[in-house]
Structures are given as structure tokens and as C-alpha cells.
Computed example of a mutant assay.
Amino acid sequence: MLLLFLSVLLTLIYCSHGDLIADTCRKTQYPLICISTLRSNPHSRSADVKGLVRFILKAALGKANTILNLANDLLKKTKDPILRQSLDTCISVYQDALDEIPIAIENVGKNNVEASDNASATFVDADTCEESFSNSPFAADNKAVKQLAVVAEDIIGSLG
């Protein structure tokens, strides 16, 4: 009987956290990227809303780091002055993002205004990088960073 009770309790806990992800993501502008990002992280199943937004921000941080590394690699390989200028812009803004996102993560639940401001700055960084190219090699990744930053802002806004 105790085993049955524990089994039902664990199932309810698991389902309630699964619902928390769906409920939280449904309130964002980009619910699909929110859900897919959180469901791909097994630790998100046991997180509260603050934990969920931290996972979203960590995913944005990973994408930002990927773009920064790719931009640095491309910069080493090109002599085209226009491409170099665009890459320099991306490198600069993503270096900023790599500073801003950890601050946002740290401030979730402590200083939500600052956390939201840093998520917003990350959105601007991705947009600035994208707009520096006529044909961006980072279009998909910039889009993902922007959407994750907006999702983070939306969730942080729900925290009050």
C-alpha cells in the first residue's frame, strides 16, 4: 500500500512539473522554443519557475558562446573588410552578452528588474549582430538567442 501511494505521489509530482513547464511556456511569446528547450533539460522537470527561467538563460548563454566562437573563427579566416567589420560587431556584442546573461541568471528572484534588463540587452545584442550582415551566417542562432531572451523576459515578468 505504501509503495502504491509513493508511486502515485511521484507520478503527480512529475506531472505537475511537466504541467509547470507547459503552463509557464504558454504565457511566453515563443512557447515552442521554451518548451523544447526546457524539455531537453532533464533537470527542468524538478525546477520551479525561477529555475525554469535560469535554464532558458543558460541555453541563451550557450548559443551566445557558440556564436562568439564561430565569429572569432571566421574572423581569423577572412580578409574581406566588410565581413570583418560585421564579425567584429558580433564579437563585441556577444562578449557583452556573455557578461549580461550570467548577471540575469544571478538576479532571477532577487532583482527581477535587473534580470529582465539583462535579458533585454541580450536580445538587442543578437539583433545588432544580425543586422550587421547583409546575409548573416548566424541567422538561425541569432534568432534562437533573441527568442530565448524574450522567453526569459516573459517569464521574469510573471515573477513580479
Score class of each variant (00 low, 15 high):
2 L>V: 10
3 L>G: 06
3 L>R: 12
5 F>S: 05
6 L>G: 08
6 L>F: 12
10 L>Y: 02
11 T>N: 04
11 T>F: 12
13 I>W: 07
16 S>E: 11
16 S>M: 11
18 G>H: 09
19 D>C: 08
19 D>Q: 10
19 D>G: 05
20 L>R: 15
20 L>S: 08
23 D>L: 10
23 D>R: 13
24 T>M: 08
24 T>I: 04
26 R>T: 10
27 K>D: 08
27 K>G: 02
27 K>Y: 08
28 T>G: 07
29 Q>W: 06
35 I>G: 00
35 I>H: 06
37 T>P: 04
37 T>H: 03
39 R>S: 10
41 N>F: 09
41 N>E: 13
43 H>K: 11
47 A>R: 10
49 V>S: 12
49 V>H: 00
50 K>S: 10
50 K>E: 13
52 L>P: 00
52 L>M: 04
53 V>D: 04
55 F>K: 08
56 I>N: 00
57 L>Y: 00
59 A>S: 15
61 L>K: 09
61 L>G: 01
61 L>T: 00
65 N>Y: 12
65 N>E: 15
65 N>P: 03
66 T>L: 13
67 I>V: 15
68 L>N: 09
69 N>K: 14
69 N>H: 11
70 L>M: 12
71 A>D: 06
74 L>G: 02
74 L>P: 06
76 K>M: 12
78 T>S: 15
79 K>M: 02
82 I>N: 11
84 R>Y: 07
85 Q>L: 14
85 Q>N: 14
86 S>E: 04
87 L>F: 02
88 D>Q: 14
88 D>V: 08
88 D>N: 15
92 S>K: 12
93 V>C: 01
95 Q>G: 10
96 D>F: 10
97 A>F: 05
97 A>G: 07
98 L>G: 04
101 I>S: 01
101 I>K: 07
104 A>P: 03
104 A>W: 04
104 A>L: 03
110 K>V: 13
111 N>P: 01
111 N>D: 15
112 N>Y: 01
116 S>M: 13
117 D>C: 01
117 D>I: 09
118 N>K: 15
121 A>T: 10
122 T>A: 02
122 T>Q: 04
122 T>V: 09
124 V>P: 01
125 D>W: 02
126 A>M: 07
127 D>W: 09
129 C>H: 07
130 E>R: 11
131 E>R: 15
132 S>R: 07
133 F>M: 09
134 S>W: 09
135 N>L: 14
137 P>C: 06
140 A>Q: 14
141 D>E: 15
142 N>L: 09
144 A>R: 02
144 A>E: 14
144 A>S: 14
146 K>H: 03
147 Q>W: 06
148 L>V: 00
148 L>I: 03
149 A>M: 02
150 V>Q: 12
150 V>R: 11
151 V>M: 02
153 E>C: 08
153 E>W: 06
157 G>Q: 09
158 S>T: 15
160 G>H: 11
